[in-house]
Design a protein around this nucleic acid. Structure first.
Lengths: 211, 211
DNA sequence: CTAATAGTGGACCATATAGTCCATAATAGG
DNA sequence: CCTATTATGGACTATATGGTCCACTATTAG
C-alpha cells in the first residue's frame, strides 16, 4: 500500500488532546485548538480523527487507560476490601489535589454528560457504569465480610463512594485547597473504615427508610 | 419621569433565566434563548439586563435567594449542630434527587467556574465561600460539643461535607437514580452522626497525617 | 519510471454567537 | 398638545465554530 506517510504521530496527538480536553472541557476545546496543538491543518485532522467527537472519545479512552485504570488498580490491590476502598478514596483525593482547577477528565465530562454530543455521552455512560460496577464488586466483598453499615445494601454504600468521588472532583474544580481535598478524602475513608460499627438508622433520623 | 413602559416583567424574566441556566448551563444558554424565553428582542434585553453575564449573575442571585438559602436554613434550624448537618445533607440529597439531570445551578456553575467569565466567576467564588463559611460555623459548633471525629479539625470535617454536596450534585448530573442519590446522602449523614465515635487514624492507614 | 494510494495545506461554507445601533413607539410631565 | 424620556423591534457587525473540498505532494508496489 503506497501513500504519503503521516507527518505527525497520532498517538502523541491524542496525548495532547487529553491535555486539552482535560484542561478546557469539551466545548471550550475547538477543532482549531486540536489542530494547532499538533501543528497540523484541518485536512489532516479530519482525515486522521474523523471529527471532534471522535477525537474526544479517543482522548477519553486514552485517559481512562492511564489515569482511571490506575486508580481502579488501587481499589483492587489490597487484600481486604475495606482497605481497598479506603486506599482508593485516598488515591482519588491525592489525584484530585494534584489536579487542582481541573480535577479528573472522566468525572468532569460525566458531570456534564447531558450537554455532550450523543456519541461521547454514550461512551461516558458506558464507562461510568463499568467503573462503578467494579467499585460495587469490591463493596459487595466488604458486605460479605459484614463490613457495611448495619442493614445497608452494597448499592447504597457504593452510592456513597460515588458521591465522594464526584465530590472530590467538584472540589478540585472549584479550586479548593489541596489540603481540603485530602482532608475530605481522609474523612470519607475514615467513615468507610468505621462502617462495621455503624447502625443504619439513628433515633434522630428524619428521612424515610431507604432499602 | 416619562418614558415608554416596559412590556415585560424583569422579575419573571429572571425566573425564566434561572430555569434556562439551570437546565442548560452558561455556555449552552444563548442570548437568543434568553430573549425568546421572555418574548423580547435584543434591544430590550440589553437595555434591561446589560449583557449575558449580568443576566446570569441575576439569575444566580435569585436562585441562591430561593433554593440555596432554603437548604442553609435547614442546616441552621436544628438545635443540635450534628442534627443540623445531617438534616442538611438529607435535604441536599432530596433536592438533588428532585433535580435529576441538572442538579443544583449554584454547585454546577461552581464546578465549572474556571471556564466562566470573570464577572460571573467572582460572584460564584464569593458565594461559595460564604456558603461553606456557614457550614463551617455549624461544624465548629459540633466541634465545641466534642462531636467531630477524634483529632479532626472543623476545616477537615467541613471539607468532607463540601465534597459530599458537590458529589450529590455530580450524581444528579450524571443521571444517577433518585434512590442512589438519597442513599448516598443518607450514608453521609449516618457517617456524620457517628463522628463522635470515630478515631482519626486507623492502624491500616497509609496517608500522611493531615492536621 | 509510473500509477495507485494516502496525507497535507488552506481556502471555503454555513451557522451560531455576543453585542451594537437606530429609527420608531409609547409614556408622563409641563 | 408637545417634548423629554425610555422601551422596542430588528437589522447589522464581527467573530468563532465545526466541517467540507480539492489541488497538490510524498510515498511504495509493480
Amino acid at each position: 500500500m503506497a501513500g504519503r506517510p503521516r507527518q505527525f504521530d497520532p498517538d502523541t496527538a491524542v496525548e495532547k488532546y487529553v491535555e486539552l480536553f482535560w484542561t478546557n472541557g469539551f466545548e471550550r476545546t475547538s477543532v482549531d485548538d486540536l489542530q494547532t496543538a499538533v501543528g497540523i491543518k484541518r485536512g489532516s485532522f479530519y482525515a486522521a480523527f474523523g471529527d471532534k467527537n471522535r477525537a474526544c472519545t479517543l482522548a477519553l479512552d486514552r485517559y481512562i487507560g492511564t489515569n482511571t485504570a490506575g486508580i481502579l488498580a488501587v481499589l483492587e490491590a489490597a487484600g481486604n476490601p475495606v482497605d481497598g476502598l479506603c486506599a482508593f478514596l485516598r488515591a482519588a483525593g491525592r489525584f484530585m489535589a494534584d489536579n487542582a482547577g481541573r480535577g479528573c477528565l472522566f468525572f468532569s465530562l460525566c458531570s456534564d454528560v447531558e450537554g455532550l454530543p450523543e456519541e461521547v455521552a454514550r461512551f461516558l455512560r458506558q464507562h461510568e457504569h463499568d467503573f462503578f460496577a467494579r467499585v460495587e464488586r469490591r463493596v459487595r466483598d466488604a458486605g460479605k465480610a459484614g463490613l457495611l453499615p448495619e442493614g445497608q445494601s452494597s448499592a447504597a454504600a457504593t452510592s456513597f463512594v460515588r458521591a465522594v468521588l464526584f465530590g472530590l472532583n467538584g472540589m478540585a474544580r472549584v479550586g479548593a485547597l489541596e489540603r481540603s481535598i485530602l482532608q475530605a478524602a481522609e474523612t470519607a475513608a475514615t467513615a468507610v473504615h468505621y462502617w462495621p460499627q455503624m447502625a443504619r438508622a439513628s433515633s434522630t433520623r428524619r428521612g424515610a427508610a431507604l432499602p
